[in-house]
Amino acid sequence: MNVITKENYAKEIKKYQPKPKLFKNCLKAFIVGGLICVVGQALSVMYIELFGFTEKSAGNPTVTTLILISALLTGFGVYDRLGQFAGAGSAVPVTGFANSITSAALEHKSEGIVLGVATNMFKLAGSVIVFGTISAYLVGMIRYLVQQFL
């Protein structure tokens, strides 16, 4: 009689799991992520040409517009399908973060504006902001120290 252990079980189920299509998944992520960046570049050029922004100052409205588009597409259910198709290609740019925040807000809207939407939306955003702030501080300190001693 065979005794089922975690190791035996893991070996058995590996036989039935589909093999990941790494090249195909990477290609889809690259194409979709690249297209998101192309849209961002087109928005940036639009802000420069039509509204007189400089290259440096066009970044803020470009990112804001990408976030708005991503939030709207999330609300309509389009961005989730894009994420299923593209994987990390849709998750890595700022649009992926906007999608995460909007999804959390929509998921908990039945609990009310403050306790549902705001609370759950900022659970995710808070950790990202803290990690980003700490990372920026550490990179800034390393850069400062390198400049001082080199």
Score class of each variant (00 low, 15 high):
Met1Val: 13
Ile4Ala: 05
Thr5Phe: 01
Thr5Arg: 07
Lys6Phe: 14
Glu7Phe: 12
Tyr9Ile: 04
Ala10Thr: 14
Lys11Pro: 00
Glu12Gly: 13
Ile13Lys: 08
Lys14Pro: 05
Lys15Gly: 05
Gln17Met: 14
Pro18Tyr: 11
Lys19Tyr: 14
Lys19Val: 15
Lys19Met: 14
Pro20Arg: 13
Pro20Lys: 13
Leu22Arg: 10
Leu22Phe: 06
Leu22Gln: 06
Lys28Asn: 10
Lys28Cys: 08
Lys28Thr: 07
Ala29Pro: 00
Phe30Ile: 05
Gly34His: 14
Val38Arg: 08
Val38Cys: 12
Ala42Leu: 07
Ala42Trp: 13
Leu43Val: 02
Ser44Gln: 11
Val45Ile: 08
Met46Gly: 10
Met46Arg: 03
Tyr47Trp: 12
Ile48Thr: 07
Ile48His: 09
Glu49Leu: 09
Phe51Ala: 13
Phe53Gly: 01
Lys56Glu: 03
Ser57Val: 05
Gly59Thr: 04
Thr62Asp: 04
Val63Leu: 12
Ile67Pro: 00
Ile67Lys: 00
Leu68Val: 10
Ile69Tyr: 01
Ser70Glu: 00
Ser70Ile: 02
Leu73Tyr: 02
Leu73Glu: 00
Gly75Leu: 02
Phe76His: 10
Phe76Leu: 11
Gly77Ile: 07
Gly77Cys: 06
Val78Ile: 07
Asp80Arg: 12
Arg81Asp: 12
Arg81Pro: 02
Arg81Ser: 11
Gly83Trp: 00
Gly83Glu: 06
Phe85Asn: 02
Gly87Thr: 04
Ser90His: 05
Ala91Phe: 15
Ala91Lys: 10
Ala91Gly: 15
Val92Trp: 01
Val92Pro: 01
Pro93His: 00
Phe97Glu: 01
Phe97His: 11
Asn99Leu: 09
Asn99Gln: 10
Ser100Thr: 10
Ser100Leu: 06
Ile101Tyr: 13
Ser103Leu: 06
Ala104Glu: 02
Glu107Asp: 12
Ser110His: 14
Glu111Tyr: 06
Glu111Gly: 06
Glu111Cys: 04
Gly112Ile: 08
Ile113Gly: 01
Ile113Trp: 14
Val114Ser: 09
Val114Thr: 08
Leu115Lys: 10
Val117Met: 09
Val117Gly: 03
Thr119Lys: 12
Met121Ala: 13
Met121Phe: 09
Lys123Ala: 07
Leu124Phe: 15
Ala125Gly: 09
Ile129Lys: 07
Phe131Gln: 09
Phe131Trp: 09
Thr133Ile: 09
Thr133Cys: 03
Ser135Cys: 02
Ser135Leu: 01
Ala136His: 03
Tyr137Gln: 02
Gly140Ala: 03
Met141Val: 07
Ile142Glu: 12
Arg143Asn: 08
Tyr144Ala: 12
Val146Asn: 07
Gln148Asn: 14
Gln148Ala: 14
